[in-house]
Design a protein around this nucleic acid. Structure first.
Length: 195
DNA sequence: ATACCGATTAACT
DNA sequence: GTTAATCGGTATA
């Protein structure tokens, strides 16, 4: 059976980061790190709207060594360390110079479950959080800046979940962002409800 | 230089 | 419900 195509550059270059976040649901995030293919369907995302979004690392046009890659061209991986422990994976969107990004918060594992379980420390194969899915896929901050049209980390096309099971709501863990914390920039669905 | 906080998680009580 | 783990960014001096 033929594999779905990688998402094209044009998917990531679009202006509206919120639309890209919603449309990433149902696509498959693939890692070939270490030589073995591991993958899962994206079930939860959050949009971060660059300079005008208080929750974003690039709020007000902030530019540091950590967030520099947010300013790269759409289709680049932005990976940073959170709470000193967790490697969070984001997809940079929009053209270079516009620091928009989509945080991948959860996947439903589909390929390489054994290796993912092993990477998770042999405990439980949970990929329901932004820190656990990167651990399962072997993604670390060393992969920051990876081109998602390359062969190491990429996203394959897949069917969008039916609109009636997709939930939009406020983002998680951004209480510090004032009114922007209330924006409905989080999208998720229950993979078990797929037809 | 020091101090505090964060796009989190797992293991507790 | 609480807390420890642990490090880059930011503010303050």
């Amino acid at each position: 059976m033929k594999r779905p195509k990688k998402l094209p550059r044009s998917f990531y270059l679009r202006d509206d980061v919120v639309t890209v976040a919603r449309e990433l649901l149902g696509k498959t995030l693939v890692s070939t790190i270490g030589g073995t293919r591991t993958a899962g369907v994206i079930t939860e995302t959050e949009a971060y709207a660059g300079p005008i979004d208080r929750a974003s690392h690039a709020y007000g046009g902030r530019r540091t060594a950590r967030n520099e890659v947010m300013y790269a061209r759409g289709g680049t991986a932005y990976i940073y360390l959170c709470y000193g422990i967790h490697h969070l994976f984001n997809v940079v969107t929009n053209d270079h110079g516009t620091p928009h990004a989509v945080l991948i918060r959860a996947i439903h594992p589909t390929e390489g479950r054994e290796l993912m379980h092993q990477r998770r420390g042999g405990t439980r194969l949970t990929t329901g959080g932004p820190g656990t899915l990167t651990q399962a896929l072997g993604i670390r901050t060393t992969h920051n800046g990876t081109d998602l049209l390359g062969d190491t980390i990429y996203i394959e096309d897949g069917p969008a979940p039916p609109a009636d099971i997709v939930i939009a709501g406020p983002r998680i863990g951004v209480d510090y962002a004032g009114e922007d914390a209330l924006l409905p920039y989080r999208f998720h669905f229950d993979a078990r409800r797929l037809p």
